[in-house]
């Protein structure tokens, strides 16, 4: 087990009140495994990613829970120790590549800095000139790996001279250059056009296989999950409501929310009649009591409105729903 998140509860303190962003998130990620984390806006996917990296904004607090990474609870580490883990062992790629590159520095400066401060081999070098040269070589090699045309030229460019897909590939190259154990891709391809998304996902797949990396792939697109993940977790209102083998979750979904989500999805591969899920996602300042989905669920019973459903194992998938587990 590389990463194990247990009963994570995160709250945001806002002028509207306390936003209960995560209400007991649990999941495991093995070495070499690609886990897809899906859910709609506000379901807590990104908050989960930020919590793992301990990069939550100042008005957020991890109330309780555990995030065990390679045997160490990240929530217990000092900020200094955490900084070593970030980047070197856990790397994150975010949705909007533009905001993660500094517009006033050339790609070269930014890439080499990442290597000089984080790469143990380059950091250890006494000769600064030598370090710079090795870092440059490594940057070129990494850019080649992400299939960047003319990497030496790209290094001399400013971020605004690159297209969205190219910028995302630069960030991929930076993230993978430190050979992390875990990659968190938070809607990493959402802002890209589909043909470019296909390129980037292909590169990510190759790199993952080459180094047997673990990947937490966060997306709202169930198609991306189906094509890139072994396991899928579906989040709703700050909780994982269903998790299991990707085939099981997407072909025979158990939770009424997963079922509804799949029925609401227009598809290119077959003719479908869409059925929307009535209502909207709950306001997490005042979350409903019991199961957060009970207001929109066609099968809601009395118990669903009062008690939060525990996890049960149903045909290989873990589901939080009172329809299962003999209740």
């Amino acid at each position: 087990m590389l990463l194990s998140v247990r009963d994570l509860i995160v709250e945001f303190y806002t002028y509207r009140g306390i936003v209960h962003a995560l209400n007991g998130v649990s999941f495991d990620l093995d070495k070499g495994e690609v886990l897809g984390l899906a859910g709609e806006t506000g379901s807590g996917k990104s908050v989960t990613a930020f919590s793992i990296q301990r990069l939550l904004p100042a008005n957020a607090k991890i109330v309780s829970g555990k995030i065990v990474f390679d045997g160490v609870d990240l929530l217990e580490l000092s900020e200094e120790k955490m900084r070593e883990i970030r980047g070197q062992r856990i790397a994150t790629i975010f949705q909007d590549p533009h905001t993660y590159l500094n517009p006033v520095f050339k790609i070269e400066r930014q890439f080499l800095d990442v290597l000089k401060y984080n790469d143990p081999e380059i950091k250890a070098l006494e000769n600064k000139k030598e370090a710079e040269r090795i870092a440059f070589e490594k940057a070129v090699e990494m850019l080649k790996k992400v299939k960047m045309p003319a990497p030496e030229r790209v290094l001399k460019m400013y971020p605004h001279e690159l297209s969205g897909g190219m910028k995302q590939r630069v960030l991929l190259a930076m993230a993978y250059s430190l050979t992390p154990d875990l990659i968190i891709a938070d809607e990493a391809t959402t802002a890209l056009d589909v043909t470019i998304q296909a390129q980037v996902l292909e590169i990510m797949k190759e790199l993952q296989k080459e180094k047997n990396l673990s990947v937490l792939l966060i997306t709202h697109d169930l198609g991306v999950i189906a094509e890139n993940c072994q396991k899928a977790a579906i989040m709703y209102a700050g909780r994982v409501v269903e998790i299991g083998d990707v085939k099981k979750v997407l072909i025979s979904p158990k939770h009424p929310y997963t079922q509804g989500l799949l029925k609401a999805l227009p598809r290119t591969d077959k003719e479908v009649e869409l059925v929307g899920i009535p209502g909207t996602v709950p306001d997490l300042v005042n979350p409903p009591t019991g199961c957060a989905f009970n207001l929109r669920c066609p099968y809601a019973k009395e118990i669903c409105r009062t008690k939060v459903p525990p996890y049960t194992l149903e045909e290989g998938s873990t589901v939080a729903c009172y329809l299962y587990g003999g209740k």
Binding site: D193, V194, T195, A198, I251
Partner: peptide, 25 residues
Amino acid sequence: IALMSAVPVPDPTLRREKIILKGEP
């Protein structure tokens, strides 16, 4: 043809050959 093949399909049992277009927009 490339556009259609690039759209991810939420069916993990479907194994399609994707056409990956080269180049930038």
